[in-house]
């Protein structure tokens, strides 16, 4: 059954949380829990979603959820999977909701280990492109030119100097059974990928772009618009990896204006034309490679 707004359950399983208004990460969790249902165990390493969901004694998860050490979300998931199987709960899902730093920087070895063991777990990375929970520091998934508190924009250096890590390809290089990228700007696509991940017999990985109004310094109402524009401008891509094959879900003929997208966000407000051109060149290089190698 195709999952869409009409078919997903009305019941909320992540409710009353204290995330900022317009939080993309909380939408990621909310939609994931609607697909996975109450028969699921969530692992939340330190990130905004564990901070806003577990404020003792205000507990916002209506299913099972636990916090994990930052570097151990993959290992904790493996343990919970083994425990659930030993108790005969083979039909339960074990998933984790890690941020971009918890996936690409701190948690990468535990993620790699979980994929290597091929445990039946779902690793969801919600990517807001910096360590937002601790006050907007640069992570491995922060794009070039982003102003964060430890990559300030001055007259010489304009924000972060490193490009975004290609974590989707790093994960796919493990030979994982199912990996995908998604965006909260295309929620139906994200729901479809969640369903696929839930049905996957081995480890699955979904990387979701989830804008953060606070860290991106953008108005709270344009969260979904930004996530959609990121895909339309080519700054983000929707792709899947299964059976050893990459597949681009959306291959726009023409990209929307990258400048209009960046100018909506305060974190790029320092940018000059050369910075826009650099990001556009990075995008074109990446898309050239993806179109050459990933398209049938």
């Amino acid at each position: 059954m195709a999952m869409n707004a009409k078919t997903i359950p009305n019941e909320e399983m992540f409710y009353g949380h204290k995330a900022c208004g317009g939080c993309g990460g909380s939408l990621t969790v909310r939609l994931a829990m609607k697909v996975l249902g109450k028969k699921s165990i969530g692992v939340y390493p330190p990130n905004c979603m564990s901070t806003v969901g577990f404020i003792y004694p205000h507990m916002c998860y209506f299913g099972n959820a636990t916090t994990a050490p930052f570097a151990a979300s993959g290992a904790v998931m493996s343990g919970l999977r083994a425990g659930a199987d030993a108790l005969g709960h083979e039909d339960w899902h074990v998933y984790c909701m890690a941020g971009d730093g918890g996936t690409a920087d701190i948690g990468i070895q535990a993620l790699s280990g979980a994929i290597d063991r091929n445990d039946r777990v779902i690793y969801i990375c919600y990517d807001n492109e910096a360590y937002m929970n601790t006050g907007i520091q640069k992570s491995g998934l922060t794009p070039t030119g982003t102003r964060t508190t430890n990559t300030p924009a001055g007259s010489n250096i304009h924000g972060a100097i490193q490009p975004k890590k290609r974590i989707f390809e790093i994960v796919a290089a493990h030979g994982i059974p199912y990996a995908a990228t998604a965006s909260v700007g295309y929620p139906e696509d994200y729901l479809r990928k969640l369903e696929k991940a839930a049905a996957c017999p081995g480890t699955s990985f979904i990387h979701v772009l989830a804008p953060c109004p606070t860290g991106w310094q953008a108005p709270s109402e344009i969260t979904i618009e930004l996530a959609k524009e990121a895909v339309d401008t080519g700054m983000w891509f929707l792709a899947e990896y299964e059976n050893g094959q990459y597949h681009l879900n959306k291959n726009p003929k023409e990209f929307a204006s990258i400048e209009a997208y960046l100018k909506k966000q305060g974190r790029f407000s320092h940018m000059v034309q050369a910075d826009f051109d650099e990001l556009a060149a990075q995008r074109d290089e990446q898309w050239g490679r993806m179109r050459a190698e990933w398209c049938d």
């Binding site: 409710y15 204290k18 205000h58 507990m59 998860y61 959820a65």
Partner: peptide
């Protein structure tokens, strides 16, 4: 702690 244990409302943020 039991899940779904709501102690507070969020309407004050609005």
């Amino acid at each position: 702690a039991p899940g779904g244990y709501l102690m507070d409302v969020s309407s004050g943020m609005r």
